[in-house]
């Protein structure tokens, strides 16, 4: 592993959201992640950076992709990783988030990764535990490692993000991925557009630093990156949009709509995909798709985040209460 001491110290104890990060913080994490990519590409993938450290994954929402990505990231750094499966724990028996947090805290973990259905859950946890906390998605609030892995994927393909045109399409209203990405992309100077039916846009979207468009042709015009968001099934059967058919007709990404974007535009999706709903299979598996790279970058970004938070140079200051 390359020498981490050459990198500046990450000035935060937790990663709760992109909102807390400066552009320099973001670049620092991306630089670290770049180095982590090479570890994952070696045949010997295990390092000892976090040897002896304990990582607990506390996932209140099922998420195969994110949870295994964090697990693998921890293991590749040499940490001991424990998965708290909510379905089979006392959480099911009505234990509150804070009680669970206190219990886990007593086991002296070094880092807690939390995914929760309620906005603000990660911040609440961070107030109550003595270790670092990483937000792996809290309600419709933030999903910072997703935004970071998206940025890393873009940066590796397109270079610096400033001046790039990024179109985020689909269910902006319920999406933590969209919120984190809007903040990160703006921080790095990209032009952000959102494309969605008005029923899937949050109040005040026009003041969130984006250009709003209700048509893919307009929103994707000359875009360097097209980010598709997942649309939950229960939201596309009359509640927010009338039908899958109609949604795909106007907002599903197919070859025709993608033509509006730059020829070499990247197509991204945080997964899991609804093929034929928000994205056509031919596009998801097509030459412009970097969906698999996103998954690979996910592991690297999570390694970088955990290294940065558990930087041994910080440890000399001792563990906070």
């Amino acid at each position: 592993m390359t020498d981490a001491s050459s990198l500046p110290l990450f000035p935060h104890r937790h990663l709760l959201g992109i909102r807390d990060l400066s552009p320099a913080d973001i670049e620092l994490l991306l630089d670290r992640a770049d180095r982590a990519v090479s570890i994952s590409r070696q045949s010997e993938k295990k390092t000892s950076t976090l040897r002896g450290r304990t990582q607990i994954n506390l996932f209140y929402e099922a998420s195969t992709r994110t949870q295994s990505s964090f697990e693998l990231a921890g293991k590749r750094l040499g940490a001991d990783v424990m998965n708290m499966s909510v379905a089979s724990s006392s959480v099911k028996k009505g234990e509150t988030l804070i009680d669970t947090a206190m219990t886990l805290n007593a086991m002296r973990p070094d880092i807690l990764i939390i995914r929760h259905q309620s906005a603000g859950a990660a911040a609440l946890l961070a107030q109550k535990v003595g270790c670092s906390v990483v937000n792996a998605g809290d309600g419709a609030h933030e999903h910072p490692t997703q935004a970071l892995l998206d940025a890393l994927t873009i940066r590796r393909a397109k270079g610096p993000l400033s001046k790039l045109i990024v179109a985020i399409c689909g269910d902006i209203l319920h999406s933590r991925v969209a919120r984190s990405n809007i903040m990160l992309l703006n921080a790095l100077g990209a032009q952000v557009r959102v494309v969605a039916p008005s029923t899937l846009l949050p109040a005040g979207i026009d003041r969130m630093g984006v250009i709003v468009s209700r048509s893919m042709a307009e929103g994707l015009k000359d875009a360097d990156v097209v980010m598709m968001l997942r649309l939950q099934r229960e939201r596309m059967e009359g509640a927010f949009v009338p039908s899958i058919r109609e949604y795909f007709r106007y907002f599903g990404l197919d070859a025709e709509k993608l033509k509006a974007a730059k020829e070499d535009a990247l197509v991204m999706h945080p997964g899991p995909m609804n093929r034929g709903v928000e994205i056509a299979s031919e596009i998801a598996d097509g030459p412009q798709s970097v969906i698999q790279e996103q998954v690979e970058m996910g592991v690297a970004v999570r390694m970088a985040v955990m290294q940065a938070l558990l930087d041994p140079r910080r440890n000399q200051e001792g563990r906070g209460a």
Partner: peptide, 12 residues
């Protein structure tokens, strides 16, 4: 409901 709730990811 408004910009502040939207950033917090809370339903307005």
């Amino acid at each position: 409901e408004g910009l502040y709730a939207s950033w917090l990811g809370l339903s307005g």
